[in-house]
Simulated assay, not measured.
Amino acid sequence: MADRDRDDEGRARNARPRDGLGRPLPYGTPGVERQPEGIVRTADAALREAQTLLNEGKPFHAHEVFEDAWKSGPDTERELWRGLAQLAVGITHAARGNLTGAASLLRRGADNITPFADAPPHDIDIAGLATWAHTLADGLPGRHDPPEAATIAPTLRARQ
């Protein structure tokens, strides 16, 4: 059995290239550069980077930015960042054609961010994102083809 890909700390990591939706590509195929893991960013930097990735049709990679924020941010915002990550994964599943899974993740993400609606942190458009997520989730079952990720990307902040 061949050795598994490992990072500098010896943890198993799949070094195969990936596309913008995080799907593995054959070794040697050019892929989308992966987001480094474990990066501590300010909330502003995380939101800007994630918005850029979403706009570029790379929701899987935006999810990794949100995941870093939820792991490194304050405990009081843990569910906010987790919910944002779930929204990004919902887009990923929709674009991959898993419309039922996408709808479920979009609703779960909206539910996780909604408690922050009364005092939205970091200028995040909580109400707008929750509405967007539910509207998209409600419309997915009737689709015949998966949407392009960039065409369904939300705007994260009320003021960009």
Rank of each mutant, 00 (worst) to 15 (best):
R108W: 04
P146V: 07
L140G: 03
G57N: 02
G128S: 04
H93V: 06
L99N: 11
R108I: 07
A158S: 15
N14G: 07
D125V: 11
G97S: 14
W81V: 02
D111K: 15
T42P: 09
L21S: 02
D125H: 05
H122D: 14
G142I: 03
T92N: 14
R16W: 07
P59W: 05
T29A: 15
G73T: 09
P154D: 04
L47G: 08
P24A: 13
W70E: 14
F116I: 12
A110P: 10
L156P: 04
Q35P: 00
D7C: 05
A150D: 01
S104F: 11
G22R: 12
L47F: 10
R41H: 07
D3G: 11
R11A: 01
R82N: 05
A12M: 00
I126K: 10
A15M: 03
A62F: 05
L87I: 13
P115G: 15
G101H: 13
G20D: 09
L106H: 14
W132Q: 09
D75P: 14
A46N: 09
L84N: 12
T114G: 02
T92S: 15
H122N: 14
P24S: 12
T131Q: 11
E79G: 01
R78V: 03
A69E: 08
A12Y: 00
A50D: 04
R108Y: 08
R96T: 07
P146S: 14
H134T: 14
I152L: 00
L136R: 06
D111T: 12
R157D: 08
A137G: 03
R41M: 12
Y27T: 08
G142C: 06
P154V: 03
G90Y: 13
T131L: 07
A149C: 01
T29L: 03
L80E: 05
A119F: 02
G38M: 12
G109F: 09
L129S: 06
N55R: 10
K71M: 08
D75S: 15
A119D: 15
L156R: 05
P36T: 12
P24E: 05
I124K: 04
L87G: 01
R143M: 15
P59C: 04
T52E: 11
H61N: 06
F66S: 08
A127R: 15
N14T: 01
P121R: 09
S72K: 10
T155L: 11
P59F: 05
T135I: 05
A150Q: 03
G83P: 06
I39E: 15
H93M: 13
E56M: 01
D7L: 07
